[in-house]
C-alpha cells in the first residue's frame, strides 16, 4: 500500500513539470477547423455584387426565424435584387440550414466565432457587416 502511495505522489509530480495545455485565450487564439460553422458570410461575385437572388428560401428554412430579407424587382433585367439582409445573432442557433438550402451558395458560415458584445443591437447584423470582405474567403 505504501509503495502505491509513493508511486502516486511521483505521478502527480511528473504532471507538475509538464507543459500546461491551457490556451491563454485573448492573447493566443484557436484556429477553427476547415468546416467550422461560425458567423455567416454573405458572398459576392467578381464585381462585388451579392450572389443572392432574394429567393427567400433561407428565411423559410430558418428554425429560429432570425433572418430578415428585403428585395426589389431588378431594374436592369429579370429577377430580383436583394436590398437588405440581416441575421439576428441573438436568436441564431448556427444550425446551417440557411447555408444548405441556398441555391446559389450565396451564404456560407465563416470562421468568426467571437460574438460577444456590449449591446444587443450590434448582434443584429445587416448586409454590410455580413458581406465577405475577403476575410472569410471561400
Amino acid at each position: 500500500m505504501i509503495k502505491a502511495l509513493i508511486v502516486g505522489l511521483f505521478t502527480t509530480l511528473k504532471h507538475f513539470f509538464r507543459r500546461s495545455i491551457t490556451m491563454k485565450y485573448p492573447e493566443e487564439k484557436w484556429t477553427p477547423p476547415e468546416r467550422f460553422r461560425g458567423r455567416h458570410v454573405f458572398l459576392t461575385d467578381d464585381e462585388g455584387k451579392p450572389l443572392c437572388i432574394a429567393c427567400g428560401l433561407c428565411v423559410r428554412a430558418c428554425p429560429c426565424e432570425c433572418i430578415e430579407l428585403e428585395s426589389e424587382k431588378n431594374p436592369d433585367g429579370p429577377g430580383k435584387v436583394v436590398t437588405g439582409y440581416s441575421i439576428n445573432y441573438l436568436r441564431c442557433c448556427f444550425c446551417g440550414l440557411c447555408v444548405e438550402v441556398c441555391p446559389k451558395d450565396a451564404i456560407r458560415q465563416g470562421k468568426e466565432f467571437e460574438l460577444a458584445a456590449y449591446d444587443k443591437e450590434s448582434l443584429i447584423m445587416d448586409m454590410d457587416t455580413l458581406l465577405d470582405k475577403g476575410v472569410n474567403a471561400r
Partner: peptide, 13 residues
Amino acid sequence: KCLGFFQIRLGPN
C-alpha cells in the same frame, strides 16, 4: 497555482 500545475493548467494568471 500549484494545483493548476499539477492538473496541467496554469492557475490564476
